[in-house]
Amino acid sequence: MRGYRALARATARAALAYRFSLLLGMVAVLVQLVALLAVWHVILEQSPMNGFTWPQMRAYLLVAFAAGTVVSILGDFRMAFRILDGDVALDLVKPVDYQKARLAESLGGLWIELALISLVVGVTLAVTGGVDLPPGPGLALFAASMLILVPLKFLIVYVSTLACFWTQNFMGVQWARLAVVNLFSGALIPLVFLPGWLATVAQWSPFAGLTSTPALIFLGQVDGREALQLVAVQLGWVLVLWFGARLVWRAALRRLTVNGG
């Protein structure tokens, strides 16, 4: 455990050392949040749409912002470049599990992300008005959903980055992941705005757990058994992706051996 804690602390120190890069990334996400708030305010100011009022959509977008910000100091570019350059071979000789080590790195910057989220959400609420919190059971399920979101998001980013063992460039992999995640997670628009069949597919995919599930629970649009079911789907995908990532890693190692890495 000592090695993993050291990796987590190193990630936090690196994020604080490169504060400008961290803030630049936060500004990019903040600009998207402001733009979405402005667009949806115009759309929903007069009347609700698909069950969303303007205050509900504002709360949805804030949850989406928080969900999109956590586990963003993962260093997927660093991991990708080490794979593409062959430096990943040096990681293999370290006395730590590769997958757990990358998870430790992603958790290392979590407290920084939570501080930034609290600041942005607090300022937004102060300017635009408060939001209604769900009742006790709903708030507990929302907290559980946000907690499960952390390993789920890590695994989606981690598995997609492992694709660099088979590709020559990471940018295409990243763009494809961002496009799929933004659509199927509900980060850009709630899944209810998608065609029925596509919304159903998205809801049962691992991506819905990144935004839609915690947001719907927070808004109270799902409760009781349905909310528990959505959280169970989140947890199920964490287990599937965790062990699935192990299989992908084994295949990647064989690829590395073939290339003489």
Rank of each mutant, 00 (worst) to 15 (best):
F142H: 00
L241Y: 09
G138T: 03
A227K: 03
Q221L: 13
L183K: 02
A144F: 08
V127N: 04
S160R: 12
R177E: 09
L152M: 12
V238M: 07
I217V: 12
W204E: 01
W166Y: 13
A179Q: 09
V131C: 05
G136Y: 09
L183R: 01
F154P: 00
F142C: 00
N169K: 14
I156C: 10
M171S: 14
L210H: 10
L152P: 06
A245G: 15
A202I: 05
R225C: 00
L216M: 12
I148L: 15
E226F: 05
L191Q: 04
A144S: 11
A232E: 06
G130H: 11
V150P: 02
F165R: 12
L219S: 04
N182I: 00
D132W: 09
G244P: 08
S212F: 15
L194N: 03
Q203V: 10
L152Y: 11
G224V: 09
A202E: 03
Q203Y: 14
L235C: 13
C164D: 11
D223I: 08
F142E: 00
T124P: 04
G209D: 04
T200S: 13
A187Y: 03
V238D: 09
L247R: 14
V192G: 07
G209Q: 08
P137C: 06
G129C: 03
A208S: 15
V192L: 07
P206G: 07
P134L: 08
L241C: 10
W175V: 15
Y158A: 02
V127Q: 04
A179E: 04
G209V: 10
R246F: 01
Y158R: 14
G244N: 02
A140G: 02
L152Q: 08
L191T: 04
L219V: 05
F165A: 14
L239N: 08
